[in-house]
Nucleic acid binder design. Structure first.
Lengths: 239, 239
DNA sequence: GCAAAAGTGTTACGCTTACACCCATGG
DNA sequence: CCATGGGTGTAAGCGTAACACTTTTGC
């Protein structure tokens, strides 16, 4: 990288600065429905209203740092899937101040979720098909995130981020059916998944959803990374 | 949208604001090679160095407004393809100031490009395979934009944004070969393209690249929009 | 023993790919 | 007349999609 050969001129200082926030669209899957984590604001403005989880970005941190900070504060989770969605910067988007928001979406394993924090922050899981009204442009952010999730899940194995690390094939299928709002043939789904050889069978069964029980699998991230670098494109069904 | 029921508290004012910039990764195609539009800075810091085209975001405009403003200033073009790439916000990314940059990539028709402005701003088209060193993290931005262009062009007809509105099939094929760094079989490429019925044949030929001449086509944006809404997925070749 | 979910193979079709020659024209 | 790029069809193989019955076990 080129090093700055001269000091920054007045130009830099004169330019107008802005408030910068991050807002997190946090998805979860309870085995049945796709859910969103929201919280009820305690402070004004909008006290009592539902909102995405967010924070202003401090000068001493990157936007990713800020997002990870609030995610940890509200869920107790670290090392979770987090990706930038979009910058929302309409001049009048926040009546309280000129503030741009960098929206990021996160995928979390509901099973790992730290429930103790839930009460403290008044967070709630809400089903995506019955969202409450959220503050500002947050409903728009959720709609955009959902569209992105659909796109991304077609060609990247991000669905596995929403399941427990050990999961069954029917569980995965239900998740995919939830994300894509369509059904899949169980035989073809299983066949295609196993043909990718990216899930490793475990000698254990999950018996919570049936008497017979269903074998557990684990996603092989290392193998996926390896194949990915060689040009392999993940996909579970034809578009 | 919920209206603010109460005035914003001191919290809003206390939060620290940041400099926010937009930087544009501007791609063009001259019929032969994929090019990037850069300019040689006249002012410090980094006077004389190559840089992406950008600006600080004013409080009175959205980031899209800001990007369109600089694109118009530097190229004389309006209504061009512009999409957000990523927010670059590492704390030490700009030694001159704490500044985050929202990178956007643009696709322009080199034929429409307003050359008169080129001299005024010292802009230059450079081939993507022989980029100069750019200021700050701009080389990283370009690499990321190129990757995004590849991804996006697989499933969205954005290649047409880089060609004149009337184009020939061999021209389009050369562009795709440039983007995807691979070759395509001319018969299969043409067959697949025409089978989508998204390009309308014109009764004119382009004779600049061969004696025989090659028929011109026009992309049918309206038809694409219509099909798109019904769930049609654009793709010119299997991944 | 029965209800409820898990697990298993085969076939038809469509899409993708590979491949070689004639056409039109300007010089 | 020849060099150059434009334009055309067919066949093989692969992946996708459709489809019905058996297995296991808790109650």
């Amino acid at each position: 990288m080129l090093q700055n050969p001269n000091p920054a001129p007045a130009y830099y200082q004169q330019a107008e600065t802005l408030l910068v926030a991050v807002d997190c669209i946090i998805f979860g899957f309870d085995g049945e429905k796709l859910k969103l984590l929201v919280f009820k604001r305690k402070l004004n403005p909008f006290a009592g209203a539902y909102s995405l989880i967010g924070s202003f970005v401090h000068p001493s941190e990157s936007t990713t740092d800020a997002a990870r900070r609030v995610l940890f504060d509200f869920t107790g989770l670290q090392d979770i899937f987090l990706e930038e969605l979009h910058v929302y910067s309409e001049v009048d988007r926040d009546p309280g101040a000129r503030c741009i928001s960098i929206a990021k979406y996160a995928l979390i394993r509901v099973t790992d979720y730290h429930k103790a924090l839930s009460d403290h922050y008044d967070t709630e899981w809400v089903a995506l098909d019955s969202l409450p009204e959220l503050v500002l442009d947050h409903n728009r952010m959720v709609a955009d995130a959902l569209q992105r999730l659909k796109q991304k899940a077609q060609f990247y194995p991000i669905g596995f981020e929403l399941l427990p690390k050990k999961f069954t094939i029917p569980m995965l299928q239900r998740l995919y059916e939830e994300i894509f709002e369509r059904s899949f043939d169980a035989r073809n789904f299983r066949k295609k998944l196993l043909s990718l050889t990216l899930v490793k069978p475990l000698p254990e069964k999950d018996r919570t959803t049936s008497k017979k029980g269903s074998f557990l699998y684990r996603f092989d991230y290392k193998k996926y990374e390896r194949l990915s670098k060689k040009g392999f494109q993940f996909s579970l069904f034809k578009i």
